[in-house]
Every structure is written in C-alpha cells, then in structure tokens.
Amino acid sequence: MAAEGVEEVASKEQLTAAQKQLLRKRQDLDYWKKNAQKIRSRNRITGLAIGAFVIGMFSYTILSVKQERIMEDIDNEAKINYIRGPRTGTNS
C-alpha cells in the first residue's frame, strides 16, 4: 500500500499539464457524482426559502396597498368635511 502511494506521487510529478487538468476534472466529476443528492436537497431548500420570502413580500405589498386605499378614502372624507366647514347652528 505504501509503495503504491509513493509510485502514485512520483507518477503525478511526471504528468503533463494537460494530464493534471484532466485528473482535476475527473476528481471534480467524482465529487459532484458523490454529493449530487445532498447538493440537490440543499438547492431545493434554498429555492423554497426564497419562494416563501417572495410570496410573503408580495402578500405584504398587496395588503399595504389595500390599507393605503382605505387611508385615501378617509383622507378624501376629511377633505370634504374640511371644505364644508364646521357645523354650527347657523349653517346646519
């Protein structure tokens, strides 16, 4: 076992740049194959979290706009009452 490791290190030193790049790509591919399920589940969780955030912001925005319309109606009523003036015995 130890001899194989030494031979492997010695053979890696003799590799060309293209062979080293191919070896790195092979290692990356093996990593992605090995961890694909874990990465996929993390991506799903992240996607669901982002989706929940977007839906929450959209709902909050719609709710705020509805309340804004109510406030506009109240403001319009206040303007009308202000224009009419105060109710006294002479103008009622």
Rank of each mutant, 00 (worst) to 15 (best):
G5Q: 06
I74G: 01
D75Q: 04
G85N: 05
R69P: 01
I50A: 15
G89R: 08
K34S: 10
R84S: 01
I83Q: 03
F53R: 15
Q14V: 11
I50V: 15
N35K: 06
R24K: 13
R40V: 05
K79I: 08
S64C: 08
E77P: 02
K79H: 06
K20V: 04
K79Q: 08
K33E: 01
M57G: 12
K66H: 15
M71W: 12
A52H: 03
E8Q: 14
N76G: 00
Q21C: 07
V54M: 07
R44F: 13
A49P: 03
L15E: 15
V9Q: 08
R42V: 04
A36R: 07
N35Q: 08
E72I: 04
Q21P: 02
R87P: 00
L63W: 13
A18C: 04
L29P: 00
M71D: 07
K33R: 06
S41M: 13
I62N: 08
K66V: 14
I50F: 14
T88G: 03
G85D: 06
M57F: 12
N81E: 13
T61D: 11
A3F: 05
A18R: 10
R40Q: 09
G56W: 02
V65H: 09
Y82M: 10
A3H: 07
A18H: 08
K20G: 02
R40L: 07
A49D: 12
A78L: 08
E68T: 08
N91L: 02
K25W: 06
T88Q: 03
I70T: 10
Q37A: 12
Q21N: 13
R87G: 05
Q14R: 15
M57R: 15
S41T: 13
A10N: 12
M57I: 13
A49Y: 08
R87I: 14
M71G: 03
A18G: 11
G5W: 00
G56L: 02
T46Q: 14
N81C: 09
K33S: 01
D73K: 04
E4A: 11
G47S: 02
W32S: 02
Q19F: 01
G51N: 14
K34Y: 10
A36E: 04
E77A: 09
I74Y: 00
Q67D: 09
E7A: 03
L15P: 00
R87S: 11
A36W: 09
Y60M: 13
E77G: 03
Q27W: 08
T16P: 01
V54P: 01
